[in-house]
């Protein structure tokens, strides 16, 4: 494992922990999109089915369990926790799952490495991950005051994606037979979705003002 991949995984982990700690300590999920969190729960569930079939490393299995556990915990907090769920604004978080899930199913059936149940699910999880952040970005745009933690959560997720791209470039040149077109293209699309957010994030940081996305 190279340093970019490890740094990417660590920022991913940090983003999830920031979000979980925010929700757990201030007992509020204001500004957090339940839709995005549910999509991530689906993404991890469909991709990490391989913990039962392939063993890669302890690190790999451990991280998979963490991502599965954290995404389900966040969904649980927003839906079921008696205090947290009161802060969830259903009327702002209106993105429809089905508009993202259905096209991803179709795409996964058409473009996959092999037409098997596992491979189609794997491709589906990558396509869905690429667009899963959209409900969160839409919600950020609607929210007047984005709190620091929600901003940091999205920022860390964006950094994680960017580091994965550097990791693929590194692996392409240092390893033989390392070609995963599906991963790379959907990963690139995913990272581009953060570009706009990054722009405003750095602007607000430079001018020391509260982050606000234009409508």
């Amino acid at each position: 494992m190279n340093i970019f991949r490890l740094a990417g995984d660590m920022t991913h982990l940090a983003s999830v922990l920031v979000l979980l700690l925010k929700i757990h300590t201030i007992k509020s999920c204001a500004g957090v999109s339940l839709k995005t969190q549910e999509l991530y729960a689906i993404v991890f569930t469909t991709r990490y089915l391989d913990i039962f079939t392939d063993f890669i490393s302890l690190y790999n299995t451990f991280m998979k369990l963490i991502f599965l556990g954290s995404s389900y915990s966040i969904v649980w907090y927003i839906r079921r926790h008696k205090i947290v769920r009161r802060s969830y604004d259903k009327n702002q978080d209106t993105f429809r799952h089905v508009f993202l899930i259905l096209p991803c199913i179709v795409l996964a059936l058409l473009i996959n490495e092999k037409l098997t149940f596992k491979e189609v699910l794997w491709a589906f999880s990558l396509y869905l991950e690429a667009v899963a952040i959209l409900p969160q970005l839409v919600l950020l745009q609607r929210t007047k005051n984005i709190d620091n933690l929600t901003g940091q959560y999205v920022f860390l997720l964006g950094v994680y994606r960017a580091l994965y791209i550097v990791n693929w470039i590194y692996r392409y040149f240092t390893e033989t037979h390392f070609v995963h077109w599906i991963t790379w293209i959907s990963g690139l699309v995913q990272t581009l979705l953060y570009a706009d957010f990054f722009y405003y994030y750095f602007q607000s940081w430079k001018t020391n003002q509260k982050l606000q996305l234009p409508a």
Partner: peptide, 10 residues
Amino acid sequence: KDSKPAKDEL
């Protein structure tokens, strides 16, 4: 030789 890249990423 294994030509299929391993899915070792998260």
